[in-house]
């Protein structure tokens, strides 16, 4: 466990040096025009306590500092009860931190006069099982609910809703269908479109693959990754499955017992697969496979993230044999 502490300390330090460093650390290319503005969300030493002052008092988050820049694909990983759900609700102002500050584009979101509605449009949050929030008579009207709440006119709302539905790959023939007649996967797409229609710069998805079968899971993850490419927004994928996120994200934040434990590239995080297990998590299956091969004396690198990468690495090692 001392190892973990060291790593945490290290990541925190690097973070203090600023946004571009965080960017580099997470192995991404920060575009030139974004470098000079403090875009995105910043958490400054944020703590959150549930039912403060009662016997039920529990600290859900302790001293979290985090930078979420524009146009980054982040995985937020943690065991049930690690505080990750509390964290995402702090990001769009649904919860107010017990101490510390949450900044959006450099401004404190809980200061008087801060436009929370605009914040929620900019920081979209798709809850777990989002299809449970569908309520309108047809899919299109349901997706228009968000833009309407922003006070936009009917035509703009409609335009945005259609755009969002196209972005989630929803065919036009479903626009006038009742959302309750859709299949499970389609319902989820419609619900994601409902948040996407607010035109967020940052989109947070809480367990978007929960309860889906392998096909549904691959479709949704593929869709999210496509949206990231097309709309160049920041996406935060909240999950307890490393296998789901390993393939897609460029940075992983690991939560454990209300604290930020790791914040690094997937390859670097999975090196700590033994510490991850102490947190009730596990590395992707492929990490274990590669480590076992190494234990058996094969000369392979263990940092493959996908089956394809692993195959290439094993073949490389096999060919290198004299």
């Amino acid at each position: 466990m001392t190892d973990t502490a060291e790593v945490t300390g290290l990541t925190d330090e690097t973070e203090l040096t600023g946004l571009s460093d965080t960017g580099e650390l997470a192995g991404l290319t920060v575009t030139a025009e974004r470098k000079w503005t403090a875009m995105g969300i910043t958490l400054e030493n944020v703590s959150y306590v549930y039912e403060q002052g009662t016997a039920m008092q529990t600290a859900a988050l302790q001293g979290i500092s985090l930078e979420i820049p524009d146009n980054q694909f982040i995985g937020l990983i943690g065991h049930t009860g690690s505080g990750k759900s509390t964290l995402v609700q702090l990001l769009n102002g649904l919860l107010r931190p017990t101490s510390g500050r949450v900044l959006y584009n450099g401004k404190d979101i809980h200061e008087d006069g801060f436009d929370k509605k605009a914040l929620r449009a900019n920081v979209g949050l798709v809850f777990q099982y989002p299809e449970h929030q569908l309520f309108e008579v047809d899919v299109l009207s349901d997706v228009m609910y968000g833009p309407k709440n922003l006070g936009l006119d009917e035509a703009t709302c409609k335009k945005r809703a259609i755009q969002a539905l196209e972005n989630v790959g929803m065919k036009e023939k479903y626009f006038k269908t009742s959302p309750f007649d859709l299949s499970g996967g389609q319902k989820r797409r419609a619900a994601i479109a409902g948040v996407l229609a607010m035109n967020p710069r940052i989109l947070i998805l809480d367990e978007p693959t929960a309860g889906l079968d392998p096909r549904g899971r691959d479709e949704i993850l593929g869709l999210i990754s496509e949206m990231k490419q097309k709309l160049s927004m920041t996406i935060i994928l909240v999950s307890h499955s490393m296998d789901d996120v390993a393939r897609y994200v460029e940075r992983i934040v690991v939560m454990g017992h209300g604290k930020k434990v790791f914040d690094d590239t997937p390859r670097n995080v999975f090196k700590h697969y033994i510490e991850l297990e102490d947190l009730g998590l596990s590395a992707p299956q492929i990490t274990y496979i590669m480590n076992t091969l190494r234990d058996y004396g094969m000369d392979v690198h263990t940092d493959a993230l996908t089956v394809e990468e692993a195959a290439a690495e094993i073949l490389r090692a096999a060919k290198r044999q004299p």
Binding site: R120, A121, F127, Q133, Y145, G146, K148, N149, M198
Partner: peptide, 10 residues
């Protein structure tokens, strides 16, 4: 939960 989800949609 539903309330929060709808607040997140404005």
């Amino acid at each position: 939960k539903i309330m929060k989800a709808q607040i997140a949609r404005g």
